[in-house]
Amino acid sequence: MRIEIPQFIWIAWFVIVSIATILATIRAIVGPTNSDRAVGLDTWTTITTGFWVILALYFFQYILLSVSMVYAILSFLGVLAIARYLERGL
């Protein structure tokens, strides 16, 4: 059960999150150093976790919430691995 949410609210959410994702992606592409790219990637994954949660609500599937949990765990581990790599190499 969930309340009826008007179409324009969904569109507003998706548009704002998409713009945020695009800005983070630009930072992840442009750089200028590898560390900047890692920071862009970190922000990107956090935004995507939020996006998964909204998608779970949109399709109204409880299982997608679990997907976002797994995504959050994996992105955390990934960012830690990247940080370790930046500090002293693999």
Partner: peptide, 11 residues
């Protein structure tokens, strides 16, 4: 969603 956008803008 707004703060996610602000974070990306800050980045």
């Amino acid at each position: 969603v707004f703060f996610l956008f602000l974070g990306a803008l800050g980045i």
